[in-house]
Design a protein around this nucleic acid. Sequence first.
DNA 1: GCCATATTCAACCGAAAGGTTGACGATATG
DNA 2: CATATCGTCAACCTTTCGGTTGAATATGGC
Lengths: 120, 120
Amino acid sequence: MAAWAHSHGMDDHLDIVFAALADPTRRAILAMLLEDDMAVTDVAEPFEMSLAAISKHLGILTRAGLISQERHGRVKWCRLEPDALRDASVWMQSFGQFEAVNLDAFEKFLERELRDAPAD
Amino acid sequence: MAAWAHSHGMDDHLDIVFAALADPTRRAILAMLLEDDMAVTDVAEPFEMSLAAISKHLGILTRAGLISQERHGRVKWCRLEPDALRDASVWMQSFGQFEAVNLDAFEKFLERELRDAPAD
DNA sequence: GCCATATTCAACCGAAAGGTTGACGATATG
DNA sequence: CATATCGTCAACCTTTCGGTTGAATATGGC
């Protein structure tokens, strides 16, 4: 089980992951990191915005668990962490394939969603 | 022009879809609509917020293509539209398969060294 | 026609998102 | 030591988000 599940509900984590994915700059960053790990400055280079803005985006991606950042000297390397994306992907597939046979995972998902919803 | 900049039409749509999914109320609504089509008032019933707020949420889900709304008399029925979710899921799976690409660690190491090299 | 019901619209509000700039701490280099 | 580079922080600004309330616009039932 993923580390974030200990301190947050799945719901909170999905909030953060989907919000992180909702920005085109951040998705472009993920696409860049798909090819290779990169330093913060190199990530920022192709974008027409300040380094501080990119640094914020990277913080958001890190908090969402979508990337990890590791410091080596004064350079901070950014690495893609596909696990969080896989989790959200699984969530979405439970909708896209709800006609299919795999109702087990979906059943558990639905239970969780309904319990977490502001009910009665 | 970078390779990741190719998908421009889809990019805007992904903005809207992921932003729509980033709210727990809206995800709960999607979960409810999995079971059955519902009228707006019935969708709003379990939530502790105004009907107008739910109406806004449904508008956002509709603009994202995640649901459709059809008016019958004075009742507006909401139906899940899993296609948009499937699209976003496909986008995410391309990242989930990151490991399948099996990038060579040595190659990454080499590129890192070259980028760090003070020569030129 | 009259009234209740279903849904949206418009105006407003506080908080959060996404950007800027300038200063700053830390690290490498000469 | 001096200086350039890497990255973040703090303060600020504007726009968007998520919610409220009250009025408005159908539509259905009697």
